[in-house]
Design a protein around this nucleic acid. Sequence first.
DNA 1: GCCAACGTTGGC
DNA 2: GCCAACGTTGGC
Length: 137
Amino acid sequence: MKYWLLKSEPSAWSWNDQVKEGSSMWDGVRNYQARNNLKKMSIGDLCFFYHSVTEKSIIGIVEVVKEFYTDPTDKTGKFVVVDVKAKKKLKNSVNLLQIKNNSKLKNIALIKQSRLSVMPISIKEWDEIINISLNNG
DNA sequence: GCCAACGTTGGC
DNA sequence: GCCAACGTTGGC
């Protein structure tokens, strides 16, 4: 089992959209590094769902339910999607500042590569973020 | 709304 | 194949 983080602008595709839609394609990735990460995903892997720009916080967890295939919205045929479905909402959202201020998360790709939209998360980072969520509020 | 960071494109 | 120009992302 591997862990990931997926970024989305909530105005384009939000957690609520994901919940409403159930299982859906994670499409629109047009960056090779992000694509390569999509290709490494397996069924059952879990991904944090991060709202960028307006909220800058991790709001929930989605599960990979179908492994990569060609992105039908990509005319060049170079990029891929996976299918994900909402698994659970975090007890409390974890915002970017909390992640930045946590020394255990100082090497997280979210900070190191702020523009990457699909990134791997280590099990330690995953657990730490879950901990922050449980202790929030 | 600005702009730094950074990925991509295209001319040479 | 290099690199300047350009476009986009996303934090601030």
